Amino acid sequence: KYKEAKESFQRFLENHEKMTSTTRYKKAEQMFGEMEVWNAISERDRLEIYEDVL
């Protein structure tokens, strides 16, 4: 289930129109921090996936 959450988060970042190569992690956290997809995984994993996607 956790792996699915990580994959969902990656797809979310890859497909969200507001995500560009210039979007900083903290800005994304402000935009999406309340969303379930954002909070479903640990911050360490979130940051790792974020850096992989951008």
Results as ranks from 00 to 15, higher is better:
residue 1 K to H: 15
residue 1 K to M: 06
residue 1 K to D: 01
residue 2 Y to S: 02
residue 3 K to V: 04
residue 4 E to M: 08
residue 4 E to R: 08
residue 5 A to W: 02
residue 5 A to E: 09
residue 5 A to V: 04
residue 5 A to F: 04
residue 6 K to V: 07
residue 6 K to Q: 07
residue 6 K to M: 12
residue 6 K to E: 04
residue 8 S to P: 01
residue 9 F to E: 10
residue 9 F to M: 03
residue 9 F to Q: 06
residue 9 F to G: 09
residue 9 F to W: 00
residue 10 Q to M: 13
residue 10 Q to V: 11
residue 10 Q to R: 15
residue 10 Q to H: 05
residue 11 R to S: 14
residue 11 R to P: 03
residue 11 R to Q: 12
residue 12 F to Y: 10
residue 12 F to P: 07
residue 12 F to Q: 05
residue 12 F to D: 09
residue 12 F to A: 05
residue 13 L to K: 05
residue 13 L to Q: 03
residue 14 E to Q: 15
residue 14 E to I: 12
residue 16 H to T: 10
residue 16 H to Q: 12
residue 17 E to R: 11
residue 18 K to P: 01
residue 18 K to N: 13
residue 19 M to V: 15
residue 19 M to C: 09
residue 19 M to T: 03
residue 20 T to P: 02
residue 20 T to Q: 10
residue 20 T to W: 07
residue 21 S to V: 11
residue 21 S to M: 12
residue 21 S to E: 12
residue 23 T to L: 14
residue 23 T to V: 10
residue 24 R to N: 15
residue 25 Y to L: 02
residue 26 K to M: 03
residue 26 K to P: 12
residue 27 K to Y: 11
residue 27 K to E: 15
residue 27 K to R: 12
residue 28 A to D: 06
residue 29 E to N: 00
residue 29 E to A: 05
residue 30 Q to D: 11
residue 31 M to F: 00
residue 31 M to S: 06
residue 31 M to K: 05
residue 31 M to I: 09
residue 31 M to T: 03
residue 32 F to H: 02
residue 32 F to N: 02
residue 32 F to K: 07
residue 33 G to W: 00
residue 35 M to F: 12
residue 35 M to I: 03
residue 36 E to T: 10
residue 36 E to C: 04
residue 36 E to Y: 02
residue 36 E to I: 01
residue 36 E to H: 10
residue 37 V to A: 09
residue 38 W to K: 10
residue 38 W to P: 09
residue 38 W to D: 07
residue 39 N to S: 06
residue 39 N to M: 01
residue 39 N to K: 13
residue 40 A to P: 06
residue 40 A to Q: 13
residue 40 A to L: 02
residue 41 I to M: 05
residue 41 I to L: 12
residue 42 S to G: 10
residue 43 E to L: 03
residue 43 E to N: 08
residue 43 E to H: 01
residue 44 R to N: 14
residue 44 R to M: 15
residue 45 D to C: 01
residue 45 D to M: 00
residue 46 R to M: 00
residue 46 R to K: 04
residue 46 R to P: 02
residue 47 L to M: 14
residue 47 L to V: 14
residue 47 L to W: 09
residue 49 I to V: 11
residue 50 Y to M: 09
residue 50 Y to C: 02
residue 50 Y to I: 01
residue 50 Y to Q: 02
residue 50 Y to V: 04
residue 50 Y to L: 06
residue 50 Y to P: 10
residue 51 E to Y: 14
residue 52 D to K: 15
residue 52 D to C: 08
residue 52 D to E: 15
residue 53 V to P: 09
residue 53 V to I: 09
